[in-house]
């Protein structure tokens, strides 16, 4: 891993932190706030790829754990991992890695649709598959109940996946980071 990769990892962790300032969008009807921070997780994977994206999410979570109030709403410290929704924070790491891995695999065919589907899979399917059983286990409630409790957040996450897909494809056009590494390998695609 080069110095350049380290700088990308560090600066993207700082971007995820800066996204806490993003004004939350309230979805009408169900009244659930969408925060931009989990959007940052999708972007970390989609822009940096699996390894660097995953490491930048880990770095961000380490800084949250050691007492910086970087989560939206100014939350931070070890307490956020001990609450009922701590599993989603750990799931962020896996989500970024999965999105990064799939984005690398589909790099040459990446468009709004494929990127959106990748973000939905990694940022919703995989993330909830970790967060829901975790909540159920620590709160001692059935998995189905925990799933029902998470359902109101899905529309917001679909909106985030849409935004993330557009941003990932646009950034790929002006500043492709995954391509640069593949160029010196024998062309696989």
């Amino acid at each position: 891993m080069s110095i350049r990769d380290i700088v990308f990892i560090a600066l993207f962790a700082a971007i995820i932190a800066a996204l806490a300032l993003f004004p939350p969008i309230i979805i009408p009807l169900i009244n659930v706030p969408i925060t931009a921070q989990s959007l940052g997780i999708m972007l970390a994977g989609g822009v940096l790829g699996a390894t660097r994206g995953g490491l930048s999410v880990i770095l961000f979570l380490v800084l949250v754990a050691i007492g910086l109030p970087l989560l939206s709403g100014g939350r931070g410290g070890f307490a956020v991992f001990f609450g009922p929704t701590g599993g989603y924070l750990i799931g962020w790491i896996v989500a970024a890695v999965v999105i990064g891995f799939l984005t690398e695999r589909f790099w040459h065919r990446l468009n709004y649709v494929s990127s959106f589907l990748i973000c939905v899979f990694g940022g919703i399917v995989v993330l909830y598959a970790i967060g829901i059983p975790w909540s159920a286990a620590v709160a001692d409630i059935p998995v189905a109940t925990a799933a029902a409790g998470s359902a109101p957040f899905i529309p917001g996450d679909i909106v985030k996946a849409l935004i993330a897909a557009v941003v990932i494809v646009t950034v790929k056009r002006s500043y492709p980071l995954i391509e640069a590494e593949r160029a010196d390998r024998p062309s696989a695609a």
Partner: peptide, 19 residues
């Protein structure tokens, strides 16, 4: 959000290269 995120990310990636 797209008009905010794309410039933020592209500018940061360019900065990262220089750093």
């Amino acid at each position: 959000p797209i008009a905010l995120l794309v410039p933020l990310i592209v500018r940061t990636l360019k900065d990262a290269d220089e750093i």
